[in-house]
Simulated assay, not measured.
Amino acid sequence: MNENTSQTIAILRFPLIVTVVLLHTYIIDRPVGGVIYVPHGEYPLFDLFAHVYQSEFGNMSVPLFFFISGFLFFYGMKKFSWLKFGHKLKKRIHSLLIPFFIWNVVFMLFVALVNMISPSLLTFKKSFVDMTFGEIANCFWNLSQGLIPLWFIRDLMIINLFAPIIYILLKNKMSKLILFGFTILFLSQIFHYVPGIGMRCAYPYMLGAWFSINGKDFIFVLNKYIYPLTILLIILVGFDTYLWTNDVSLFALNRFAQIIGIMTIPLWMSRCIEAGVLKKNDFLSKGSFFVFVFHMFIIYIPTKLWVYMFPVNGWTATMALLFIPLLVAFFCLGVYKVLLMFMPKVVTIAMGERN
């Protein structure tokens, strides 16, 4: 793999994970102690900022993760091999399946403990001791009572199983036409939220896979279009935001902006690396997964406490939305560092790493 592309993917992990934390930082219409301190419409400028920052650009992070996952799964597989396919699936057992079960179980135990100590803190989560066996099993599928962000891992594991079919679809002369057809499905909201094979997962994954399957470095291929893509992205986000201010929502427009975003963001990251502005940090890169799984254990604390610590207005709400994801992410990294010191083998397994 081109060194710049490898560096770009590695460096992207942490800021994208911080963006995932941002998506779970609820400020607007969030009740705290039964009171909604920041209702929608109370602070119009903050509403606008939150929409652009969180809903427009923030929502590009997960599709970009799927894009990168598809690119990496098929990397080095210009010619399909069942042996390579089996080897890649075996690696995903360590990196995806085992952490998926470990962290979901840990979170369920955490919820049960919190419900024993202070039931009012997690009223929307049910303790597993009050669940039937079927409800407990369902916590590993729909995840509404489990660790919700793990839906990404669930869908990624499922779509990986379809790799042979994806390879056949994208390794032929009609691949661009087939990919265009899936683009229409992605924009149309058809089969969008079906676990594993839904377009919110399958399409960006296939888009990334297309580059690897056809032996193309996506940074090298797309770099020549960086300025047109950037201008188009700004126009799309601007128009979608304008419609939002008029209470109009166009699903296709929003998702088209996501497509352009997942192709544009890595290009600017690559430019920053070439300019020497950014350098790979192994700790941030490796610790990103821990932030991903652990932030939901603590995110509700700062999102509730800030209203008691500062006067509530549009300015402080903006600061909360900006800094809470960063504070939570770096706190998670601190916990990760401590756990590495005292139980490195356990952390290695839980993180999906192998010695």
Rank of each mutant, 00 (worst) to 15 (best):
M1W: 09
R13V: 01
F14D: 07
V20I: 09
V20E: 11
L22S: 05
H24F: 13
P31F: 05
I36D: 07
V38K: 06
G41C: 10
L45W: 13
F49M: 05
H51T: 15
S55R: 04
M60H: 04
S61Y: 02
S61C: 09
F65K: 00
F65T: 00
G70E: 00
F71M: 03
F74Y: 00
F74P: 02
K79V: 11
F80V: 00
L83T: 14
I93L: 13
H94A: 13
I98S: 06
I98N: 10
F101I: 08
V105N: 13
V105K: 08
V106H: 03
M108G: 08
V114K: 04
P119H: 13
S120F: 12
L121P: 12
L122Y: 14
K126V: 04
V129E: 13
M131D: 04
I136E: 09
F152T: 02
I158E: 07
N160K: 02
L161P: 05
I165C: 12
L169P: 09
L179G: 01
L179M: 02
F180W: 06
F180P: 03
G181H: 07
L185H: 01
F186H: 06
L187A: 07
I190D: 15
H192S: 14
R200V: 06
A209K: 07
F211G: 05
S212E: 09
I213W: 05
N214Q: 14
L222E: 09
I226V: 14
D240S: 11
L243G: 08
W244K: 15
N246K: 01
D247A: 10
D247C: 05
D247H: 11
L250H: 12
A252Y: 09
N254C: 08
I259W: 05
I262Y: 00
T264V: 02
E274M: 06
E274D: 12
G276R: 05
V277S: 15
K279T: 10
D282I: 12
K286W: 10
F290P: 05
F294T: 03
F294D: 06
M296H: 05
F297D: 06
I301E: 07
L305K: 10
F310H: 07
P311W: 12
V312D: 09
T316R: 12
A317I: 02
T318I: 02
M319K: 02
L322C: 11
F323C: 04
L326W: 00
L333I: 08
V335D: 14
V335N: 10
K337G: 14
V338K: 10
V338T: 15
L340F: 15
K345I: 12
V346R: 10
A350P: 14
M351P: 14
G352Q: 06
E353M: 11
E353H: 13
R354C: 13
